[in-house]
Design a protein around this nucleic acid. Sequence first.
DNA 1: CTGAAAGCGCTTACAG
DNA 2: CTGAAAGCGCTTACAG
Lengths: 334, 334
Amino acid sequence: MTTMVKVAQLAGVSISTVSYVLNGTRHVSDETRQRVLKAIEETSYRQDALARAMRRSRTDSIGLIVSDGGEPAFAEMIRGVEETAASQGITLLLANSAEDPKREARAVEALLGRRVDGLILARAAGSGPEALSEFANSNTPLVLMDRLSADPYDQVGVENREPTMELVEHLVAQGHERILLIAGDTRVATLQERHDAFAEAMAAAGIAPSDQLTVIAFEPAETDAGIEAALSAAEPPTAVIACSTVLAAAALRRIQQRGLRMPEDIAFATFDGFAYADLFEPQLTTVRQPAFQVGATAAELLSKRIADKSGKPSVVRLAPTIEYRASTAPRPAT
Amino acid sequence: MTTMVKVAQLAGVSISTVSYVLNGTRHVSDETRQRVLKAIEETSYRQDALARAMRRSRTDSIGLIVSDGGEPAFAEMIRGVEETAASQGITLLLANSAEDPKREARAVEALLGRRVDGLILARAAGSGPEALSEFANSNTPLVLMDRLSADPYDQVGVENREPTMELVEHLVAQGHERILLIAGDTRVATLQERHDAFAEAMAAAGIAPSDQLTVIAFEPAETDAGIEAALSAAEPPTAVIACSTVLAAAALRRIQQRGLRMPEDIAFATFDGFAYADLFEPQLTTVRQPAFQVGATAAELLSKRIADKSGKPSVVRLAPTIEYRASTAPRPAT
DNA sequence: CTGAAAGCGCTTACAG
DNA sequence: CTGAAAGCGCTTACAG
């Protein structure tokens, strides 16, 4: 590899001058600068980011740990982070915890050891408060993404209460009373919030809560069993709300198996939704979160925090859009 | 930040000893080792990967540049690379070229500057041979993923010829002769290969080639126009093969708009396919590539190459699985 | 069994 | 306008 020494020799200057030319951090006479530039060209010299980082104690890189890189929403967030970071010359170090708190902890260690300037974390479902303790002492900035908490960190996620209530009102207005909520793993803050807002909206509509009509489950098998039980109950739901893409897929499979038509036999709405959703038949009413924007905002919050570590953490909630589609069209009068 | 110096002082040893304990690279007496370990614990010391990398000239990190992080197949490949790397203690540096050769070139520079031990590259559609010239001189190993080339690098992608031919035979056996191939951007090697295999299979079946029945397009708008023209021709196709997920989506939209039923009015098959494909109605015949495995293999090839830079490059082709579904069921006799 | 010291490739006060 | 030198935090021959 070519180093500054070779460039300096070729240009007949000191390595300091090469450095100053490279970074524009000191005035260098035009003639000298040209010689240096030419030498850089000829040797096809490339700055060593490692050595530079070490000296400056700043790596111009950030870490991102997601809990499930496979989910479309997260894939979008990753893109949002990557794009925003790249536009500022920041490299992204990516890790996937796969919802495993141990892998999450290891990823945090690995990234911190690589001295990222900051970290964005979408926490694993079962991850306890220990995961964050690492950051309490360290002065590496942390931004929580998607899955928020009460801890004093910069955070970005989506609004959950309003859209959930609006969705419930929409269904109630159509005459639905037995609405099945597939809440999933309520240890995830997002899902807990949607669950709570659902309960609140139902109460506001004067509909008595029913345990049979809420599926809380930590594992796919439990989810399936819960949905199956609800659908085969004596008084089955007339509408379903799924709180995430995975949960929606589980529900749609059961609905298809039973040959239920949407919305005639059962109305259906989901959070997050599917890629290429316009191809679904019928098209699904979806609370779509601005996932790319969530990622982009996380990267921006982190940049700001890296630039200025003082000041109170800010919590940003982005508003989802509710796309009303055929799957919750008003039922024909019976 | 705690450094080795603090640990050494606390343990009453030299920093060399701390280093040897940390890395297990030299025998250290039990008693000394315990003292060092205790000091590490007490100071919550964490090794600085940067300084370590600089000394060892090895970063234990690899770079990955994908051309479209949004496509499901690439998202899966990213996961495959990440998981395999993580299991070996390797950190992943991720960049997205978004099919832009300039962004690709910048990403290569950025990652090389960060001294990744090796690079995995899924090239942008329009990326010329210059992109690779960087590696000809450099001795940073490169693995080409998904989009292969004739250049002498380790590569991993999928088999295209066999499944394409099998798919065509399947359709021809059902009586289809006017089969529309949506090939897309044939500058992408994968798509060119599928295109060529299609032509070969049609010739083998004794069906004359037709320009009207092949859509080659570099832009979404062109693709749409090409599909539209083909479907509204005097003699429209009775079957469609889409060579990627994006192309399939474009075709399915047109098919739905025209109210064509699958497979009664038109048979349909696609490469790569959709996430949650079991929810589509009808379910789509799909040549599904083992995308996760492609990523994992890329990471493994890279590991091997990093460990041993001599030896001929290996080209791995993974076999896709053809999932025959309702969208190409035999047409009822007319 | 352990330590003192060189050096990885840079940046940046200090000095002229 | 430019250079000599210290130092970022490690690893690893060299020496005892």
